[in-house]
Design a binder for these strands. Structure first.
Lengths: 335, 335
DNA sequence: CACCATGATGGGAGCGTTCCCATTGTCAAC
DNA sequence: GTTGACAATGGGAACGCTCCCATCATGGTG
């Protein structure tokens, strides 16, 4: 590939200076209609693409947005990512997807700051993860940040970032409410979610439902297996009539364990999931699950982020709700 | 965030010139041990991160590699992506993940060339997609390219790119062989894969097995649903004893349709998938499927690409094999 | 002791933009 | 006719690097 055209070539072709071409390129004012047209034509003729590196260098920042994700293989995340990509299409920002499997010794703050220095994006969407007290460096970046579906704890000053989450504690309560109504008196819980569990427990204890918490055997990356193993162990112990899984992936793993043990769902045992990933409508039986507001999450996160970047709005903390999808994996006791 | 340190600051701190710092940064020869140590210390003290834009600008290219994927939501792809990320870790290249949902009027060549001009990467891994005759612009980039799991047709000159695939035609034959042995005489095929189908048909016709091809109702993005709908329609017609699905996602959709119709797997009907995504070990019953060589694909693609970039090897076309994972969804006739 | 190869280092140009400031041209108001 | 405001445009500096070439010791060789 021979040397590409640069801004001077375009300028020469259009018979103007590089400054004028730059103005056209960036949609700045102060260019006559006729000149603009000529420049655009020249650009078109050469299929000229401005050199990003040079652009970034001289303007310090870049016309890009980073989407930082903790493990794209997670079906919940990958669905949100896809939707965010769609939402960003045609928005004139570049979306840089950064996958990061967080190890214990690296916090989200470290990763975000590193990426910031490297990429100089205009904003950042962080998908998932825990977000705790040690956020000073994050804040110091003074970068528009939207946290999506993150667990946020111990942060009182919230004016410098946005968040879009479900209210985990309330969701836990709803989930628990659903169970209480159903008459199940002993349930096995698989999964970790501080707030969701807290909400659940409160309601369940009031109604005299006993919860059996599974230990999770952290196998990293193999989410299905975690659910499977945990369920297997719980089933060996017995003493409950319903599995409550804090994610669908765990539920799918648990489903396998149940079937392996020769039990029928929901006749012998019920199971509820959480997330409403696409897959969960295709299990046998289809999973009863609380469906995350995917479209809403994607749309809002992009809208807020770009709004803040373009100074047309301020930060916000949006709380959305899940929708119960009554599959066939859950049934009230004795029905 | 106040102004970051630049190469001059480091140079001043270490008492050397910017050239020397640059040499240290890029691992070039010609720096004494003592100087190098001093520079490294200064870099460390400031947690200095070189400005990428400037680097790219002066060296025209960037220390990055693009991973171009057709829809990261596809579980097969997302698994490969995750593994490629792992493989690249610590390799001193930046991996830029680019998701592209190809529409009909945009070819892979167009997308790749656009990205190339914009990102100036050192190489590109293209995951999936069809790769046909109109490749001249791709080739003209003179960029190391590795095509992974792509369908390649009508390209005779193959010295300028690498590929890692399974031999679809042979895999089709193997799949067909498995079916012939089993005694199924009428099978329903769901999915599109030119070569795989061609291989299958040849073997099946020789053995007198009749194939019923499902029409696919292209619902875009909703792969599970495609399988479901296609299976539903086929089941209404009847006349076969086994579903052959050309991907596991389709198979999971089909499984749902089968159960909905009150049939048992594999007693009443068998089903075989393809890909061996993580999920397929957790269906009910677990899917019999041909597992793609994920690790191998990821490892080889990275090794080849970096090898070519660093001029330690030449292009290659690697053909790998799947492994039959005998789940429980398939059973020979009359057993 | 002059010479040259070699290793370590510094300095300057150039990469392709953006952004600021200066310049020119035009027109209305006085 | 002079002035000032304003729109349109050009030119130069700056962004932070890499890369090439020049310089300067150092030490072995004839």
């Amino acid at each position: 590939m021979q040397k590409d055209a640069n801004i001077f070539d375009i300028a020469r072709m259009a018979g103007v200076s590089k400054s004028t071409v730059s103005r056209v390129l960036n949609g700045h004012a102060g260019v006559s209609k006729a000149t603009r047209a000529r420049v655009l034509q020249a650009i078109d003729e050469c299929t000229y693409i401005p050199n990003n590196a040079a652009r970034n260098l001289s303007s310090i920042t870049t016309q890009s947005v980073v989407l930082l994700v903790h493990g794209i293989a997670n079906p919940f995340f990958s669905r949100v990512i896809t939707l965010i990509f769609e939402e960003m299409r045609g928005k004139n920002y570049e979306l840089i997807l950064h996958n990061c499997e967080l190890s214990d010794d690296i916090s989200i703050t470290d990763v975000a700051v590193g990426i910031y220095k490297e990429k100089r994006p205009k904003g950042m969407i962080i998908l998932g993860g825990h977000f705790e007290e040690t956020y000073a460096p994050l804040r110091a970046m003074e970068l528009p940040i939207v946290m999506v579906s993150a667990t946020i704890r111990g942060i009182t000053d919230r004016l410098w970032f946005s968040s879009i989450t479900i209210d985990d504690e309330r969701e836990g309560e709803r989930l628990a409410g659903h169970i209480c109504q159903s008459g199940h008196k002993d349930i096995a819980v698989i999964g970790q979610s501080y707030f969701r569990e807290r909400g659940m427990r409160r309601v369940l204890e009031d109604s005299g439902v006993r919860t059996h918490i599974a230990d999770l055997d952290y196998d990293r990356a193999y989410q299905f297996k975690i659910g499977y193993k945990a369920a297997k162990k719980m089933l060996a112990q017995g003493g409950f009539t319903c599995f409550v899984c804090l994610s669908d992936v765990l539920a799918i793993g648990a489903l396998r364990a149940i079937h392996e043990n020769g039990l029928r769902v929901p006749e012998d045992i019920s199971i509820v999931g959480f997330d409403g990933i696409e897959n969960s409508a295709y299990t046998n039986p289809p999973l009863t699950t609380f469906v995350q507001p995917y479209e809403e999450m994607a749309a809002q996160s992009v809208e807020i982020l770009l709004g803040i970047i373009e100074c047309t709005r301020t930060h916000a903390h949006i709380i959305l709700q899940t929708t119960l999808d009554e599959g066939a994996s859950f049934r009230p006791v004795g029905s």
